[in-house]
Amino acid sequence: MTPWLLALLVVVDGTLCGFRAAAGRNPRLFLRAYYAASMRRAALLALVVAAGFLGVTMAVRAHDAEAFSAIVAAGEVMVLVYGVYATVVLLALGLYLLGHFDLGVLATVLVLGPFTLARPLVIVAGAAFAAWSSPHPAAVAFAVAGASAMLVFERLLDLGRPPWRGVLTAVHR
């Protein structure tokens, strides 16, 4: 269960990264399709990352039961830390999307802004806590690799042909 929950969190976080990566790079007003394209692209990349980690975890399970248990124990800690973070963010996002002006501002000011800034710290804290709770080398490697992947994830979205590439040049001909 734990590996699947972690994979779900990776995909949720990756999809939100897709929104953030596209935001502030297109001055148009009607951006639903633009954001949707970026979030779809990011979700796919997150699925690939999650599948890679699931694959490695399953391979470890087949060969080393002790290492697998340690990874799961570390994963449980990460699910707890990242799960709380993701729940608060998604609740705030829901509040924002309700459309009520004051609730929207509160959701932004109290959660959506500060939590974006805190994301790298939460990722590192979750991985450090997991490694400390389950100090098996395989679990530590799993936590460090997972956290590193999510820390560089937003940068990865700049590669290839993201939806924002050339937008400003195109409208500012």
Binding site: A23, G24, R25, P27, F101, G104, V105, L168
Partner: peptide, 20 residues
């Protein structure tokens, strides 16, 4: 300035400056 103002547009969306 174009990049800066494009980023500002995002903030204006988020803080619902139009609604305000």
């Amino acid at each position: 300035l174009l990049r800066a103002h494009t980023e500002l547009t995002r903030l204006a969306f988020e803080f619902r400056n139009g609604v305000r």
